[in-house]
């Protein structure tokens, strides 16, 4: 049995070392391929404006966008807006995650709680979250609290659903292993349930974070005096499209960067899954 298992493995490693340089090159080039289209479009537009075919007034060329970013950065305004927005996303995300995790865990663990709680949560989920804005402003005022609350609502639902679904789908057979080894309730949660739900939980967190970024824009549209969303509104009211595009670009970078940080932070916890996908990819 050892032979049949070992042989293909060594063969694979040898083949791997032979094609390594080419494969490595391909691995680095493939993501770059995705950059080709946006870069070409940007360069094309830059050239069009530079050659005078368009004024670039409504659609600013990349150089103007970057100049605007540089200007905002030099005056210190940019970092202030970024920090304000980041803080709102972070606190809304934290609140949404805490509430979603606790309620999702309760609904997933106790059938009675699920039957009591879940229909209401699902009904609330059907409400477009932006519809809460007027109420939140009335209840919580126009300042930070209502903004953070809106973001938290956006983050709450995917986390709640993710946690509840993950707990419900934990393999009964694996739970039985815990029973055989006579794990106590808390030990069962720590040693079986938590690790089993972790992959789905991380996914839910990432979806939640994405929604958090979506909702921060909506939140900052409602009368903010700083933040990236304010830059958007300000750019619209003062007719500065370059500032709008600059804010959009920064949103994109921050959204991607925070998602990436979350992915990196959780990667060590999901190494066992990683090993699987790597193996499956190689085979």
């Amino acid at each position: 049995m050892g032979m049949t298992v070992e042989l293909p493995t060594t063969g694979q490693i040898e083949a791997g070392t032979q094609v390594a340089p080419l494969a490595r090159l391909r691995r680095y080039l493939r993501p770059l391929l995705g950059l080709l289209l946006p870069l070409a479009l940007a360069a094309g537009w830059e050239l069009t404006v530079w050659l005078g075919f368009s004024s670039g007034r409504l659609v600013p060329p990349p150089s103007k966008v970057f100049a605007t970013i540089g200007e905002l950065a030099r005056s210190g305004e940019l970092s202030r807006h970024i920090w304000v927005t980041l803080w709102r996303v972070a606190s809304g995300f934290a609140l949404g995650v805490i509430a979603g995790t606790i309620m999702g865990a309760i609904s997933g663990y106790w059938g009675l709680a699920r039957r009591l709680l879940d229909p209401t949560v699902q009904a609330l989920r059907a409400i477009p979250s932006i519809a809460w804005v007027p109420l939140f402003i009335l209840w919580l005022g126009i300042f930070e609290t209502s903004k953070v609350a809106l973001i938290a609502v956006g983050v709450f639902f995917p986390v709640y659903l993710g946690v509840m679904g993950a707990i419900l789908s934990v393999d009964r057979k694996i739970v039985e292993v815990g029973r055989i080894f006579r794990l106590s309730g808390p030990a069962m949660i720590r040693r079986i349930l938590l690790p089993a739900v972790l992959p789905a939980y991380v996914l839910a967190l990432r979806v939640g974070l994405g929604l958090g970024w979506m909702f921060v824009v909506a939140a900052e549209f409602m009368g903010a005096s700083e933040g990236l969303g304010y830059l958007l509104i300000d750019g619209q009211q003062l007719g500065k499209p370059a500032q709008i595009v600059a804010a959009i670009v920064i949103f994109a970078i921050l959204g991607k960067a925070t998602d990436w940080l979350l992915e990196i932070a959780t990667a060590p916890l999901l190494r066992w899954q990683d090993a699987f996908s790597r193996q499956a990819g190689g085979a």
């Binding site: 690790p195 899954q273 699987f276």
Partner: peptide, 20 residues
Amino acid sequence: SAPHEKIGIIFQEPRLLPWL
């Protein structure tokens, strides 16, 4: 009447914990 430390069981599937 409940799992006992002196009784072990092996199932049809290995039921290993994939994260360990």
